[in-house]
Design a protein around this nucleic acid. Sequence first.
DNA 1: TTCCAGGGGTAGA
DNA 2: TCTACCCATGGA
Length: 310
Amino acid sequence: MNRFSVAPPPDFDFRATVQSHGWCQLAPFVVQENGRALGWPARIAKKRLVRVEVSQPAGRGGPVEVEIGGTHAGVSKPTRATIEASVRRMLRLDEDLSEFHTLCRAAGPPFDRAATGGFGRLLRSPTLFEDLVKVLATTNTAWSGTRAMVARLVAITDGVAFPTPAEVAALGAARLRSEGRWGYRAGYLAALAERIDSGALDLAAWEEWPGSTEELANEIRDLPGFGPYAVSQVLALLGRYDRIGVDSVFRSFVLRRHFPRARKAPSTRRMLAVYNDWGSWRFLAYWWEVWLEYQSTIARSSSESRPAKK
DNA sequence: TTCCAGGGGTAGA
DNA sequence: TCTACCCATGGA
């Protein structure tokens, strides 16, 4: 049996999750038209890969269908369990967003639509290591550079699936720089992989962190190359939304949306204060506004490019 | 060639 | 804690 389904929470929306941010565009993810399905090569044993594709054919609230390809034999129960765990992590099927959605309904338009649309689940990678690497690849580079760096990393290591920490560590900083073109980030990437591969850093502890966000943030901040922006992004991927990573997207968006008439850009503190009332849900409130603007941009460009009806 | 991106690091106030 | 400043590097 190479196909099974997973019951999601009633408000789960597959497309909204897949297209929640840029992750679906990064290798080795393959996204089907308009986020209908998401595929990736999954490692089920040291040397064994299968192709996994997930979708939600029945739409919001319907079952998530998981199809496993690239193998003639049926997959074993443990393999299926591994893949289901990955799918749950990536789509955040176990995350409770009811408090955020309650706040969204109370806030009125346009936030109420975040609740009805099942917004708030940011797509993750199968592993936290992969998420950390991808966050590092977003620092101080254009989005096109991020995509290229991640694609080259996959190409020069595993070639198909996202590499393990051991594979990245074995490559070393010099080749990550020369072949991966990770620039000055190459040293950070190699150090991260080595710390995990050697057992000095246990990412499993971060997934189930019992302490405060502050403590977890300090742990992440200890990674070379992870400054305030990257720490906040990782926290959001770990389900902690009380901080907003200040980057060029944040600055330009908040200036445009909340300070349209400002002669000079307000301070970072003033920009962040826009979302203070959202407390532990600041990041999702901010990202919902960004997401709405992005969706309207897409809608506008597609209606402009659509030929006029005769 | 210049400019800048989904910044990081550090010093000094 | 905040600001100013320098640094890095590939791609448009």
